[in-house]
C-alpha cells in the first residue's frame, strides 16, 4: 500500500502508457490508433513533469520569500516534446485524410483487403 501511494505519479504514468500502447496495437481504426499514440506520448510527458517536481517547491521564477524551486528543465524539454507530438499528430491526421480519400475507408482491415485484391 505504501508503495502504491508514495509513487502514485508512476502508477498513473504506467496506466496511461499501457492504455495508450494497447489502443495503438489493438484498434484497427486509423484515427483511434492516433488517439492511442497521443495518450502514450502524454504519459511520457507526465513522467517528465512529475520527476521535475520538488516537494514544497514553487514555480521557478525568482521572487522574494521563495527558497525552493521546481526543476524547470523537464518542463522545457516537454514543451519541445509536445510540439513534436503536435507535429506528429497533424501529419498523421493529414495522412488519414488522404488515405480516406484514396481508399474510402479508415479501417485497417478494409484497406488491407483492397490492396490484396489488386
Amino acid at each position: 500500500m505504501e508503495l502504491i501511494l508514495s509513487h502514485y505519479n508512476y502508477w498513473i504514468v504506467i496506466f496511461l502508457m499501457m492504455a495508450g500502447f494497447y489502443t495503438v496495437i489493438s484498434r484497427g481504426n486509423l484515427v483511434k490508433k492516433i488517439v492511442g499514440l497521443n495518450i502514450f506520448q502524454v504519459s511520457v510527458f507526465l513522467l517528465y513533469i512529475s520527476i521535475g517536481n520538488v516537494e514544497g517547491g514553487t514555480a521557478p521564477i525568482v521572487i522574494e520569500g521563495a527558497e525552493k524551486y521546481s526543476n524547470p528543465l523537464p518542463h522545457v524539454l516537454i514543451l519541445t516534446a509536445i510540439v513534436v507530438g503536435i507535429a506528429t499528430t497533424a501529419l498523421a491526421l493529414a495522412l488519414v485524410v488522404r488515405i480516406r480519400e484514396a481508399y474510402g475507408t479508415i479501417e485497417e482491415e478494409e484497406i488491407h483487403e483492397q490492396d490484396q485484391s489488386l
Partner: peptide
C-alpha cells in the same frame, strides 16, 4: 496510394520508437 499507408505505418512505429 500504398505510399500513404506505408507512411502511416512508419509514422506509428517510428513514433512509438521515439517515445
Amino acid at each position: 496510394r500504398q505510399a500513404l499507408t506505408a507512411a502511416y505505418q512508419y509514422l506509428i512505429m517510428g513514433t512509438i520508437g521515439a517515445t
